[in-house]
Design a protein around this nucleic acid. Structure first.
Lengths: 149, 149
DNA sequence: AGAATGTCTATAGATGAAGTAGACAAATTA
DNA sequence: TAATTTGTCTACTTCATCTATAGACATTCT
């Protein structure tokens, strides 16, 4: 199960991707549109800013924008930033690998081999789906590209 | 991430499956062999008993056995019993379905569609892998079948 | 100066994970 | 029957994490 925080982060980023051509977007606008508790969203956006996914400007007419290209930012990426590993057990995670304390022999642990298949299947999906792959976003990206001509 | 409890449950059941021909197995034997805290394992086994996966006898020479056929008991089944849904979000779970509170329109929610793919991929693996599919267990099942001739 | 924004620090309640303690009940066997 | 060996039941603890909320503060624009 992914956390609400990760779901909120995804929705917020997707919203920003949709509005990308509009420039800065208010926290409260995102909060209302995506039904995310405002203060909670604030904290999430700060995290995403630290990760250099979004950018912000303070003061009047301030707000947030996406900095990372939606065609390069995968859902797996976002979830990992917020929730940590996608893998069902640490011992099959690539980026968050940790040995199981109780495991007698990792090399022959059959639970591990099974979980590795689950991890791979999950990552195959989430690491190859980018924000731009969501239809509303794609439409805008295409539109943007058209404008650049 | 699956819980330690679920991992312990799996390991304990796999151990019971391996020892199936030996009759009753002590909690403490499983605990030592699989490095599971004894009292914690006790609680897990009680749960599994309620779910009618295992059976127990009290008193001297007591212990636990697997009641359910290892060729019929899937890993997905076990994890669900302990941890609940395999799906990454409630709204794509079959057995634990729940609407997302914040979701504006479930039918067109693209995060949901993506998560559904993840759920399906996960379940495809875990619901078609049975305890008997683990090599050590299979070996014993085959052996048992041979003995029945 | 004042309004509209994001930022920072602190806190809090609920929940669940992971584990522990100890009295109790049942079965065996000496 | 008494002692021993098992599983059972109830209760508790500890710790972490999730999901927020409150409020003062800093910055920018007009």
């Amino acid at each position: 199960m992914i956390s609400k925080k990760a779901k909120y982060a995804l929705k917020a980023l997707l919203y920003l991707a949709k509005q990308h051509d509009r420039g800065l977007v208010l926290i409260s606008e995102i909060a209302v549109a995506e039904r995310i508790p405002r203060k909670f969203l604030e904290a999430i956006l700060v995290d995403l800013k630290v990760q250099q996914i979004v950018q912000s400007t303070r003061g009047k007419n301030g707000g947030y924008t996406l900095v990372k290209d939606p065609t390069q930012l995968s859902v797996g990426n976002v979830i990992r930033m917020v929730d940590g590993p996608l893998a069902p057990v640490h011992c099959v995670s690539h980026l968050y690998y940790r040995k199981c304390e109780e495991c007698v022999d990792e090399a022959t642990c059959e639970i591990r081999l099974l979980m590795k298949r689950v991890r791979d299947a999950t990552c195959d999906i989430l690491d190859t789906t980018y924000l731009a792959d969501f239809s509303k976003v794609t439409a805008l990206v295409v539109e943007e590209e058209a404008n650049q001509i």
